[in-house]
Design a protein around this nucleic acid. Structure first.
Lengths: 134, 134
DNA sequence: ACGAGTCATGAGAACGATTCTCAGGCTTGG
DNA sequence: CCAAGCCTGAGAATCGTTCTCATGACTCGT
């Protein structure tokens, strides 16, 4: 069912870069990171890989306030949300308080179907705050 | 304090277009809509106007799954969330169940500050569903 | 190991949304 | 009515992301 994906060194490199951090990273950041690391991978490939990983639920994706996509390999498989640092991307996986049932209920009441929800918290982590305030 | 904004016919047109609908609309959609209506306004101006309206809290903004910005003039002034139709943009304003306090609590527990949250529900409205299923 | 058939890669072009530039137009305070 | 300055609009410029296509790398059957 799951289409066969060849394991190439590029895919391994991207996956490795993701595994190496807890922070949400953009495709371009990962691209640079891999280049600096010596495992240069084409930008297009980074995008493609992230896309397939996301499609397979292997990585979580979210959008910055200005629309940029950020990726992160999460520990949990089950659905969850995040508390993300706006400046460094550090993220903590959190539970949404009964968001699911609430979402379903509200949606049904309005006649909507195929419901999905987005719940993310953005903030400044302690480290970044300290760095900023000096 | 709030810098003086001149009331020009373009600004009025954009605001008017927003007032005329309940649906979330992209800058480009509004631009076309105004052109068709006869109140042609430059695309750049539409973007600028939406930007200032959003900054002033006069309109709500949210991002499509693929990063496009959608705008809507909401009825409520207080903070609220939305149940939005993926295909037509129709939206219903809804209350988030104690999201605020939950967000603050979780954030504090993790040492984060300057918290903001994003809570949106996406679905297919009854009309669009009917149209799709025939 | 050899070759065919495929999927993957990468450089650069193409895209779509949004922002910037700048010369000329409109508003507003006085 | 005038001056000073915000506004506007067309087009160029950005930026993130996707597409194109020639070339490279896997896999499998033999």
């Amino acid at each position: 069912m799951t289409q066969q994906l060849r394991m190439t060194k590029q895919r391994a490199a991207v996956a490795g870069a993701l595994d190496a951090t807890d922070e949400f990273r953009s495709a371009q950041q990962l691209h640079e990171l891999l280049r600096d690391r010596g495992d240069a991978v084409g930008l297009a490939t980074v995008y493609r890989t992230l896309q397939s990983l996301a499609a397979g639920g292997e990585v979580d994706v979210l959008r910055t306030e200005d629309g940029e996509a950020l990726y992160r390999r999460c520990v949990r498989d089950e659905h969850h949300h995040h508390l993300v640092c706006r400046s460094c991307g550090t993220a903590v996986e959190i539970d949404g308080p009964t968001v699911e049932s609430w979402a379903a209920r509200v949606a049904a009441a309005q006649g909507f179907s195929d419901i999905e929800h987005t719940v993310e918290l953005w903030g400044t982590c302690a480290a970044c705050r300290a760095a900023r305030e000096g």
